[in-house]
């Protein structure tokens, strides 16, 4: 071993050895040296982050194309309901507040347009029409389609995310609400009160989504709708 070290030192420039050892020590964090000086002034700034909402997997990695899969329905002469779950183990609703919204925040879910519909090729049905308990067109909105979606965050499971010292206190799940065009275009999913953790992250799973399908709705396998999950600081 000594012989090997001797050969290595002989082969190398002494200054390079000292520099290399120094870099390795600093990089590994094994030793920390503070040189005493009357003018020493160590400063560090950690900027606040920005409030964010996302759909992440169990490892907190953003899901590229998040979606909510609804239960299948069979053609019926009567109005029927399909259900789905927004927020799953692989697609968590995730709120991150890195000291960016001390007054609290509101997370809400809305369709990408108030005139949006469950769209399939050649046939659609509505998501925000409360005619006949959501089963038929009310005539209030511009389209002539029936169908209504209800979102119930209150049955979901709220948990702290990666923050070990955080709590879910003062973070409230929204109540069960149905979309009604012109009246309820946006449904509150989560609310962080001012007293909630200023630095914290939370994840929500198991939000119930149910959709009334009008009677005699044409069968199709590709009904879909675009929705937007928003967060705004209070």
């Amino acid at each position: 071993m000594n012989k090997l070290l001797h050969v290595l030192l002989w082969k190398m420039n002494l200054q390079a050895v000292i520099a290399t050892v120094g870099i390795l020590v600093l990089a590994s964090g094994v030793g920390t040296y503070v040189y005493a000086s009357s003018t020493s002034n160590f400063q560090q700034t950690i900027n606040i982050g920005t409030l964010a909402i996302d759909i992440v997997d169990a490892s907190y990695v953003t899901v590229a194309s998040p979606s909510v899969v609804m239960s299948t329905a069979t053609f019926s002469f009567a109005c029927q309901t399909i259900t789905g779950t927004f927020g799953t183990a692989s697609q968590n609703i995730y709120v991150s507040n890195p000291d960016a919204a001390d007054n609290g925040w509101t997370a809400s879910l809305a369709a990408s347009a108030t005139t949006a519909v469950w769209d399939s090729v050649g046939t659609d049905y509505d998501f925000n029409d409360n005619g006949t308990s959501g089963c038929a067109d009310s005539g209030v909105d511009v389209d002539t389609l029936g169908g209504q979606m209800t979102v119930d965050p209150s049955v979901g499971t709220l948990a702290v995310g990666q923050c070990n010292s955080c709590v879910t206190t003062n973070v409230t799940k929204g109540s069960s609400t149905a979309y009604v065009e012109g009246t309820t275009n946006s449904i509150t999913v989560l609310t962080g009160a001012a007293a909630s953790n200023d630095i914290g992250d939370w994840k929500l799973t198991g939000v119930s989504v149910s959709q009334k399908i009008p009677e005699e709705q044409v069968p199709a396998t590709d009904y879909d709708i675009n929705m937007v999950l928003s967060i705004v600081a209070s």
Binding site: I55, S65, P66, S112, D222, D224, N226, M227
Partner: peptide, 24 residues
Amino acid sequence: IQKKQPTADLTESGIQITTRVGVR
């Protein structure tokens, strides 16, 4: 500030989700 996401390839009836952040 709204994330522009690729269209989800849904094989079943479903909802495509986009996220956004608002600054008041």
